[in-house]
Design a protein around this nucleic acid. Structure first.
Lengths: 336, 336
DNA sequence: TCTGGCGCGGAAAACCTATTCCTTAAGGTA
DNA sequence: TACCTTAAGGAATAGGTTTTCCGCGCCAGA
């Protein structure tokens, strides 16, 4: 089923058929109609490979992730697809599973497939080695940043997110605030802690970076850390956590020690991961870094780069605080 | 950077260059070496579009999901990519977001892109309208099944999973078993209940399908249902849940009512969703339907179909019980 | 009536690669 | 020495589409 068949069915040449189907050239309306009708009847769909071969553009991009398309990549991907799909661009998925060999094979394939561009996503915001595709097509990073070069990267505002959470806890009257988060080696964890610390210090509330409880991104760590925190600071009236999972664990830990949430201790998480944050009792206040928006921006930047614009450097997307029951105002002196 | 450039650099014709690079034809070893060396030096990668145009195969497949690449699609996708990637096949992702118009646009695009095949995945196992791609390329369903036609579908064994969980609860000595699950309209929920019921009845343990607590796939429902269950059956010594999320809620609900897990009540979930099942305290025993395996099989079936074999009908993948602390043996008369 | 212009549609090139067929030269045999 | 065989590599074609250029016929104006 090619345009040749359509042309034959409409009694015109292939060139004419092409013009009729694409609204080009000077054709009689009746001819146009005859061709489109024949195409319709035969169920003709143009071969995009041939178009790509001719036009030098394939209308495809690669999406490379080191995250096994996990919790972070997926929303980013959806946002990117949104932006790209509107431009009629299809997306190849490439899941490296953190294996450099796999990644190289994927890159080779994408090069062979003559993609128009590439989006590289990562776990949290850890910097990663830049991908090497020569100057064949533009690359945009999302949720990660290249160690070398100045290819554009779209990042969440982890520091701002930490600050926003801090401000909220201050606003509802809390002053003895703890912070339980993931491993210190994660840039995202350090940035969130920094944001929190700066805002609290600015407000005259004492908070030392040395007080941050670094651990792992798990509920188990949250439960354990809750005990540690109350051991050293029994008068804690709010805990800001580096992830919703940790917050879930902290919540259970606090309850096990007799604290009520939010009456005795307000609890805030990070990520706004729906199943975790909404499933909690009470539902979790949390920071949403707007992953879809990050993906959408990455897609738009890539489209711009494909269109010839030069886009460079980092760009952060503001985080959004989502207030739920776990930090209801009223404070520790409230209804309890 | 085309094979023409390579040929020029090696002082041969394009035909000869092609033969040298693909190990075809009769060429002097020295000529072969000269060509491959030039290709290497110029960083040549063959244009797969041109190859596809010529060979009639594009070595691409589509992956269509109604699940927004959520919890179910992702592992299926990874498995499928595993199977397909080994065959040098790239995957187009198509996220319909449950919008028929979007779906149709994706299908049109895939047809235009001349994919070699299509995998359709879904949420749980609900049957869905068959996709219509004429006889252009083979279609395999995974985690869903077509309402019409007999295209192959790979499904989890929900009934067997329910039976396996039942057997496990019997094995650890429980006899008063409750079942809390998602909405009754979900085939998966009904099948799991059926599997449980049959196995219990076979073992002489009374269980009426009317006792199943259907609700929603949420922790909140789990918490609520736990109260309902203990209200009507205070001597319950085990609860099997239709999802890990529900199990989390049930666990919290039971604890709030003073029951210890697993000492007083054993608790089992479904899905083996790591963050939920492992984060729980104690970690959840659960049924793993082996989503990756389903995806892998779907990929293999699709490869077979692309290769010309005719594959038809449903195929189920056995579920696997993952035993963790929440159903430790010993029973209610045990250490408590 | 002849010419210029315009409306319409056809022919061909281009995109890149793989493959089939063909040419050339060299070496061997009768 | 002439013919045949074989090795080696070149030329051409196919695949589907778009676009540029060109030609044909008709109408209007001179």
């Amino acid at each position: 089923m090619t345009i040749r068949d359509v042309a034959a069915a409409a009694n015109v040449s292939v060139g004419t058929a092409s013009k009729a189907l694409n609204g080009q050239g000077r054709l009689r309306p009746e001819t146009r109609r005859r061709v489109t009708e024949a195409a319709q009847r035969l169920g003709f769909a143009p071969n995009v490979l041939a178009q790509g071969l001719l036009g030098g553009r394939t209308y495809t991009v690669g999406l490379l992730t080191t995250d096994s398309f996990g919790r972070f990549s997926i929303p980013v991907m959806l946002g990117a697809e949104d932006a790209l799909g509107a431009g009629q661009i299809s997306v190849f998925m490439c899941d490296t599973r953190d294996d450099p060999d796999r990644e190289q094979r994927y890159l080779d394939r994408l090069i062979s497939r003559r993609v128009d561009g590439l989006i590289v996503t990562g776990r949290r915001i850890e910097p990663r080695p830049a991908v090497d595709v020569g100057r064949r097509f533009p690359v945009v990073y999302a949720m990660t940043q290249p160690l070398e070069g100045d290819d554009p990267a779209i990042l969440p505002d982890d520091e701002g997110g930490g600050a926003t959470a801090a401000q909220h806890l201050l606003d509802i009257g809390r002053r003895r605030i703890g912070h339980i988060t993931g491993p210190e080696r994660f840039l995202a964890a350090r940035k969130r802690a920094t944001g929190l610390s700066h805002r609290l210090t600015d407000a005259g509330v004492p908070f030392a970076l040395a007080d941050v409880l670094y651990g792992e991104w798990s509920e188990r760590w949250g439960r354990e850390a809750a005990r540690i925190l109350l051991d050293t600071s029994p008068d804690t009236d709010a805990v800001f956590c580096g992830s919703d999972q940790i917050a879930r664990g902290v919540g259970d830990g606090l309850r096990a020690l007799g604290r009520r949430i939010p009456d005795d201790v307000a609890l805030a998480g990070f990520d706004n991961w729906a199943p975790m944050a909404l499933g909690a009792d009470p539902p979790l206040t949390t920071v949403d870094v707007c992953l879809e928006q990050i993906g959408r921006l990455a897609g738009q930047h890539l489209l711009a780069a494909i269109g010839g614009e030069t886009v460079r450097g980092l760009r952060t997307v503001p985080a959004r605080l989502v207030v739920r029951e776990s930090t209801r105002a009223g404070g520790h002196s409230g209804s309890g």
